[in-house]
């Protein structure tokens, strides 16, 4: 059961990787990285159940947090071209990268 889930996760990871490599626009790639992070979280959870130690779930939740913050950081970077002091930045520069 968990083995089937792990194999399904591997297949979807391959699909996401292909989209990340081929994806024509920037948003395809950002979304692909975000989905890959989600798949990582799911895989850590599956790994915990496969080894008979579901306490890996806490770690999986931490990865979900990192994934969320990372995606926000990337998107904020594209919008403002800066991470910290956005008050100095013109807001309409972000679409050029």
């Amino acid at each position: 059961m968990f083995i089937a889930a792990a194999i399904a996760l591997f297949i979807s990871m391959m699909l996401v990787l292909a989209r990340l490599y081929a994806g024509p626009t920037l948003y395809d790639r950002v979304l692909a990285v975000n989905s890959f992070g989600t798949l990582t979280v799911l895989f850590i959870a599956i790994l915990g159940f496969l080894n008979g130690r579901p306490d890996f779930l806490d770690i999986a939740i931490l990865y979900a947090l990192i994934n969320f913050v990372g995606t926000i950081a990337i998107l904020k970077f594209f919008r403002y071209r800066s991470l910290g002091d956005i008050s100095q930045m013109p807001p309409d520069e972000g679409d050029t990268l």
Binding site: R29, A32, G70
Partner: peptide, 18 residues
């Protein structure tokens, strides 16, 4: 795309460590 792929590479490494 290289930057995004290196992020994915690092996630895979992390999975391997787990």
């Amino acid at each position: 795309s290289v930057v995004m792929l290196s992020g994915v590479f690092s996630l895979l490494t992390a999975l391997f460590f787990v």
